[in-house]
């Protein structure tokens, strides 16, 4: 199952994006905690691209494609801005007390922890960032 929508690159669109995600997940009756992890990852990635776009002014719109099959949920965000790989930022140093830490990088770190796989590719002058969460095996027996 695959769904596709486009949003202006602005954080004010987050509620609409949550609705889009929730609609897809509800249809598949996926577990609530899995939905929460995906929502966090979607928020962080979308916000990251928005921030980059406001500095860059080249993005404009971000298209989101959600694919759900028996094994996984995959979410792709694409934009036509300058090359930008969100996963390249350094992981934050978590050994420093939180109030003394550099504020950046926490969101992307969080996505990497919550998702099973993240990737980036540049195709036809578009940035395509992907996040992936494996689904627990459905073997017919609900624990």
């Amino acid at each position: 199952m695959q769904s596709y929508r486009e949003f202006a690159a602005h954080v004010e669109n987050l509620p609409r994006i949550y609705d889009f995600l929730a609609t897809q997940l509800i249809e598949r009756e996926l577990h609530e905690s899995l939905g929460f992890d995906l929502k966090v990852a979607v928020e962080e990635l979308f916000t990251n691209i928005c921030k980059y776009s406001s500095a860059d002014r080249s993005v404009g719109r971000i298209s989101i494609q959600i694919t759900i099959n028996a094994e996984l949920v995959q979410i792709e965000m694409a934009d036509s801005g300058h090359p930008f790989n969100p996963w390249e930022s350094d992981d934050p140093n978590l050994d420093i007390p939180p109030e003394d830490r550099e504020i950046g990088g926490l969101g992307i770190f969080l996505v990497k922890q919550l998702m099973d796989h993240v990737s980036y590719r540049r195709v036809d002058n578009r940035n395509i960032s992907t996040i992936c969460k494996n689904l627990p095996c459905i073997s017919g027996d609900k624990e």
Binding site: F36, K39, V40, E43, E44, T47, P98, E99, D100, R101, I103, L106, G107, L110
Partner: peptide, 19 residues
């Protein structure tokens, strides 16, 4: 119901200022 790093940032900011 929901928090992301942007929210945590504000809590950490509050923590820093209060401490």
């Amino acid at each position: 119901d929901f928090i992301s790093s942007a929210g945590i940032r504000v809590i950490l900011m509050a923590q820093k200022e209060l401490l």
